[in-house]
């Protein structure tokens, strides 16, 4: 089955999608610069690609379009407020180990901690930072404040993400590639919102564009 992201089933107009894309571009531009300063390595964030898909088409979209299949590392974090939902960061299984190498050269060889533990810590930190940065910046652009729960790290998840997505929800798919220094650490960010929140987002996007 072919998925057309702009099919009539998706409750967002072309204009709204353009504004969302713009908000994301601005947010991610700031995030990249600030992240580089914080982790002290060069961070390249590609221009985010924004797609909105209905929850029921999500799985198909993942496997057919993104060719993303398990196992991967997943960092799951809920956020609430007017903009509420769940953010999923999905990295390949190797990405986690590459991140450990970037952040924790000094801690990685002490031999006390298990490598899984270290990987988990690093993924939790980086995941929390990326989600917080992206969701936070979007909220900031739209003049809102968001609250976050503790991120949950699932290593080498082989289960399908579809189980986590309600069929009636709307998935805002933000695909971006992160590159840390010379190490390939790339991942996808998915933001999943419920209908109420999606409605608020659409209104906020209109308010946003009116100020210019």
């Amino acid at each position: 089955m072919m998925i057309i992201p702009n099919s009539t089933e998706v409750p967002i107009s072309e204009d709204e999608k353009d504004i969302l894309q713009e908000v994301m571009n601005i947010s991610f531009g700031q995030v990249a610069a600030e992240l580089a300063e914080i982790i002290d390595v060069l961070v390249v964030l590609s221009v985010p690609n924004v797609t909105v898909v209905p929850g029921k088409d999500f799985q198909n979209y993942l496997s057919k379009k993104l060719k993303l299949s398990p196992p991967f590392n997943v960092i799951e974090q809920s956020f609430s407020g007017k903009l509420s939902g769940i953010a999923f960061l999905v990295f390949s299984s190797e990405s986690g180990k590459n991140m450990v190498a970037i952040l924790d050269e000094e801690g990685g060889e002490d031999g006390i901690q298990g490598i899984d533990q270290l990987e988990k810590e690093t993924l939790m930190e980086i995941g929390n930072m990326l989600t917080g940065a992206c969701v936070g910046k979007i909220a900031e652009q739209l003049d809102e404040v968001v609250y976050y729960t503790l991120p949950r790290v699932i290593l080498n998840s082989s289960s399908s993400l579809i189980d986590l997505v309600d069929k009636d929800s709307v998935v805002i798919l933000v695909k971006t590639e992160f590159q840390f220094a010379d190490n390939d650490v790339s991942g996808f960010l998915f933001l999943i919102t419920n209908q109420d929140s999606f409605q608020w987002l659409k209104e906020a996007l209109h308010r946003y564009i009116e100020q210019f």
Binding site: V31, I38, N128, M129, G132, A133, K137, Y148
Partner: peptide
Amino acid sequence: RSCKAVFAFGNLA
């Protein structure tokens, strides 16, 4: 790092 991130992004660490 976490503090810098919260200053920059306003998230929770």
